[in-house]
């Protein structure tokens, strides 16, 4: 499933989407994020599955616009470290 973490407010849409079907539980994204936004956990939206998947930490979900800002300079933005670390391409950002 696609898990959307984040929010929409007057200034835009700020979501990190994780495709839990693509996520292969490798956890490479966790150390790749300089702000430690991600962690591995059992898929809380599929309680009958035992698989661990990448999720956005609870305390970051309402402020990711600010937490992710250092990786998103206005000019010269490269590939985001979390997305670069994810071989199966399970991570996406909406902004």
């Amino acid at each position: 499933m696609i898990a959307n973490y984040g929010y929409k407010d007057g200034s835009g849409e700020f979501f990190i989407s994780i495709d839990t079907d693509k996520c292969d539980s490798c956890a490479d994204c966790v150390p790749a994020c300089p702000a430690k936004v991600l962690e591995m956990a059992t898929d809380e939206y599929d309680p009958l599955s035992e698989k661990t998947v990448a999720t956005v930490r609870e305390e970051e979900r309402k402020k990711i616009k600010y937490t992710c800002a250092p990786c998103k300079p206005a000019s010269g933005r490269g590939v985001l470290p979390c997305m670069a670390a994810c071989a199966p391409g399970a991570i996406a950002h909406s902004w």
Partner: peptide, 11 residues
Amino acid sequence: GKVSNFLMNDK
């Protein structure tokens, strides 16, 4: 009834 996508407005 298995979740495939969701969004929450809790702000």
